[in-house]
Amino acid sequence: MYLIVVGGGKVGYYLTKTLVNEGYEVLLIEKNQSKVDTYTERFGAIVMNGDGAEAATLAAAGAGRADVVVAVTGDDEDNLVICQMAKQRFHVKRTIARVNNPKNEELFRKLGIDVTVNHTNVILSLIEQQIPDRHFVHLLALKHAELEVVEASVSPDSPIAGQAVNDIRFPPETNIIALLRHGELIIPSGQTRVEAGDDVIAVTRLRSEAALRQLIVNE
């Protein structure tokens, strides 16, 4: 597997380092020559000086044989163009863009970027998971399909406490994936009873989220 990382800021640097340690073939492209010199000292000949949005740079980097191009510069417009150039001119199968402005995540997907990573949203969801009194937490957003994975704890006065999964009237396009009971994972069948205090992990359509929250948490 060959990966090209564009952008030698902190993210690009540590990403490259980690990927090398994992045994992948990696090339880091960075615009600033003095950064290139420093990184070459540390990594050897896997750092290249150039503008990753330029076709000539991508060609020299071997984008034509790359499995993944990851654009992690500090500028969203650069990350977008790097990924689109990689896709359009070099037919790279998977492009991953760092998105600095959370509002751009959806736009990037519309414009053909396969995966977007946004620091702000990642930190936000980590915070949500860490706050003990949050009864309803977003674990993962699959925005392509407008689906999301959520975790919610069943409150004692929830209408689903004590009911079998089959008998619960979930909102449309919602499914329970797992139950966590006293730290143990239960993969529920239709007969499994949900108890107050269980953590329910469910996949749901965005528009059904409010109804699901109401059902489980009964806020």
Partner: peptide, 11 residues
């Protein structure tokens, strides 16, 4: 900036 123009136009 080329990339800014490209992204703005696509928006």
């Amino acid at each position: 900036g080329d990339n800014t123009n490209i992204m703005a136009a696509q928006i």
